[in-house]
Amino acid sequence: MSPELLYLVVGATIWAVGLGGLLLVHHMLRRVIAVNLMGSGVFLVLVALAARSSPPDPVLQALVVTGLVVAISATAFAVRLASARAQHSSGTPEVERPGGDES
């Protein structure tokens, strides 16, 4: 198995794990993390695809950089929204404690 293929498989797996987490987990913070996992998976796939040629494909690297920017801002927004929601529902500024899955 070539390293690129390995990275491809790993990336796809991470993406799938993230997707599963998003659909199956109820805790909001964990879902935010799940979405981030999905993102990382896709980026890994993209980078692995870029590494197939040498020099590595610049287009894909540009895509990953753009994607990262999007992912960071989206995550920031999601975390802020989750904490605002938690603050509103519990009266404390903390995000719900991990483990205490809300239904």
């Binding site: 796809a12 993406w15 993230g18 997707l19 998003l22 659909l23 909001m28 879902r31 935010v32 799940a34 979405v35 999905m38 993102g39 998976g41 896709v42 796939v45 994607g67 989206a74 927004f77 999601a78 929204l81």
Partner: peptide, 14 residues
Amino acid sequence: YLLLSLGASLCYLM
């Protein structure tokens, strides 16, 4: 809405 939407975007990106 946000989380599902982000997940959906990443499906699309894949």
